[in-house]
Design a protein around this nucleic acid. Sequence first.
DNA 1: TTGTATGCGTTATCAT
DNA 2: ATGATAACGCATACAA
Lengths: 329, 329
Amino acid sequence: MTIYEVARRAGVSIATVSRALRGTGPVAGPTREKVLRAVEELRFMPSRAGVSLAEGRHAANGIVFPNLSGPYFTEVLIGYEEVASELGRSVIILSTKGRDAIRDLVRELAGRVDGLVVFGSTVPDDVIDELAASGLPLVLISHAERPGAVTLRSENAASAKALATHLLGHGYRRFAFLGAPYATGDDVDLRWQGVREVLGDAVTPVLTAEYTVESGHEAALRLLGAPGGPEAVICSDDEVALGAILAAEQLGLSVPDDVAVTGWDDIMAARHARPALTTVRQPMRELGARAARALDALIAGAGPEDGHRVLQTELIIRSSCGHHPPGGR
Amino acid sequence: MTIYEVARRAGVSIATVSRALRGTGPVAGPTREKVLRAVEELRFMPSRAGVSLAEGRHAANGIVFPNLSGPYFTEVLIGYEEVASELGRSVIILSTKGRDAIRDLVRELAGRVDGLVVFGSTVPDDVIDELAASGLPLVLISHAERPGAVTLRSENAASAKALATHLLGHGYRRFAFLGAPYATGDDVDLRWQGVREVLGDAVTPVLTAEYTVESGHEAALRLLGAPGGPEAVICSDDEVALGAILAAEQLGLSVPDDVAVTGWDDIMAARHARPALTTVRQPMRELGARAARALDALIAGAGPEDGHRVLQTELIIRSSCGHHPPGGR
DNA sequence: TTGTATGCGTTATCAT
DNA sequence: ATGATAACGCATACAA
């Protein structure tokens, strides 16, 4: 079912069919009618490959993330897909978790899209370099500022300081920062830096295997099971924090009476956990939506080719960090 | 950067470049070297549109789901993407939630892929008809059997009966089935049918707005707040069940002492909830993985063009449905 | 083993 | 207002 068959059926040329269908160039009323009828009868849909080749664009965006296991990347993806779809662009996903030939996969993806969103730390930096050098529009989420790409992230250090300060206000003096191995400049690293700036040597870093409930659980069991444990555990994210709460419960420790626990992200489970989790809300969907818009602007050639944008967060005080006087703020 | 420039640089024809790159047809050793060197120097990547047009295929699969808000669709997507990627196929996603021109979006998607996975009830049946009629390989998840497409789902009715029977064993006699408006033949409808078959008039259906914690919470507040409420609430899925547990707690009711609650799916939060949720485990990732493989077979032209496959589930007894003697089964 | 030439399905330019 | 035709970038049948 090609444009030629439609043209033949309508008794016109393929040029006319193309014009009638996409509204470019003049087409007489009756002619348009004939064409549309033929299209209808033949259930014609222009071949995407043909269009892409002729137009020199894909009308598709890519997104590269490490995995979709937790709510974080999923939420960002939701915001991204929604806006991309509104802008008439399909979205092609690529998860790097457990893949070995990441470089090839990313290259392949790059070949099918007009632009790419990449989460920091999912792709080796030289691959990013290659993409940027190729001129592909690029938006990096939670990645250090970088010429040749737009970078976008939520604020980390200031929120971390606010959180740490709040915990000091509760009277805690021995802290642990619980999270996965963080890479320099990634979100969790910045949170750690912020926390450390306020707490100094009062806070000890404790690594988990991953940013998951399971990992948080295991690490917290060890941390809280040993003597001289922390009075407050600042977790890299909500999932690790939920794991820490489980561990505390398992060890017969009360949260927050025996040990305070805080998270990050404000995923849905944070509000429903017991105790409800004190956390830093991060606008995850907004992050995805902004990325989609920024990428669109990049592709359209509007705006600067690089730049850095930081989205604000909000400290959400609930009950897992300690007791608060009713009516107090 | 086209194949012509590579050919010129290597001093060969484009046919030789193509052969050297994709390993089809014979190429002399030294010639291959020259070509590969030119490719390297020019950072050549074949144009996806060109390849697709020439090959007559996209090497891409689509998947259509209602949303990615909860763990269910996300988990299926994880399994799907992983297998599709292994099979060398990109994954293009489409969320229908809140979209108005679903038909057009699906058509557009259909034009960019070699095959499509669609969750039941996300797309009007006549759109499915159109896709099937067009000959596009189609796998339907949690959709009624259907000629012209492979359908795939997890088992529902038998699990529902087992669950209901287990609850009867606890001695409960007044039940509610809590879930969103279900469509005939969808998963939740089949669960309801199974439950009803065992419990008869002892179970009352109660609708929620959606399959979400919030919806379950609201509906359960009304259900449990009224006099003569049920002794056990069988929920359509874990998220609704978590909402129900929240509602019970809020109303000062103990789960399971005052009211039992069960879920479905065994999402991660089910195990971590308090009380831990009795539920029916459904192999979500496996569902996605199977869909990807079935679609691949369909595209390859292997196997029958339609068929129905049902994946087994497992009843997971935890503490939200009542007390169990230690050591008992 | 290598090259030539054609087709894949559009879009868009340029005549008419 | 409409039609012929040249790209677009690649794969491949066929010749050499």
